[in-house]
Design a protein around this nucleic acid. Structure first.
Lengths: 121, 121
DNA sequence: AGTCAACACCTAGATAAACAAAATATATGT
DNA sequence: ACATATATTTTGTTTATCTAGGTGTTGACT
């Protein structure tokens, strides 16, 4: 079992969401940002300054691959495809996320029962 | 309602946990780190390099107050006490946290139904 | 008397995630 | 001609958290 789990881990929420959506098929950047809005019931959106650097980092790590496609005579779009190692990485950050969420939930729902009561108020 | 919620918000997990625990009474730094381990079933711990700066920041913002107490003839400990504004702040980051958790859960549990299927595999 | 572990606090510097705010360019509708 | 939506890029900034050290006290064991 894990010990001394830190808060820094389980922080790659954007990676997690992007990879999760890419499990459903290949999408391009702008499309991903739209899907995130849609899937979250318009609750969250990822600014471009977060989205694209995240995609480049995932690509650098080999978790996703990129392919330029010309749709009709339109400008080219860069479609991203999740690779097997990306699915592995997704599993890791998903379980990290659940782990941290569980731990925080324990703390938030804890009912503190003090041992000795010395009134001073 | 909130719109365009970002990931940067709802990230003050350490603040949230510290304030939550301080709702149960006054504690000192080292004690807080022990309680976090205990309450989380040993799942997480906060390193001192995260804990103390977080406490100082909360204090600077007036969310908590500090008081030195000598327990017996022991070395002094610095007890922290949550202030009303700290409780307000806790409510804010708690609802931010729940908001973000809900939105992520929507995305993670989304079943994508593509409009048009063109087989290419 | 010496040592060691647990207690209790402090801090400088590094890392890295996420963001804001720009810019570029195409396509579409009015 | 102009505005809006689409689509990508990049520079610089912020900030949360961590690493890795440091100081000093207390109490137990040898």
């Amino acid at each position: 079992m894990k010990q001394n789990y830190n808060f820094k881990r389980g922080k790659n929420n954007i990676d997690m969401i992007l990879l999760k959506i890419l499990c459903n098929g290949d999408f391009y950047g702008y499309q991903l940002s739209q899907l995130i809005k849609e899937f979250s019931h318009e609750m969250i959106s990822i600014p471009e300054g977060s989205l694209y650097p995240a995609l480049y980092k995932l690509q650098d790590n080999g978790y996703i691959s990129a392919e330029k496609r010309l749709v009709g005579k339109r400008q080219e779009r860069i479609y991203y495809h999740i690779e097997p190692s990306g699915r592995d990485y997704l599993q890791t950050i998903l379980s990290d996320y659940e782990y941290l969420t569980t731990a925080i939930q324990y703390i938030l729902s804890y009912q503190y029962a003090p041992q000795e009561e010395t009134e001073d108020e």
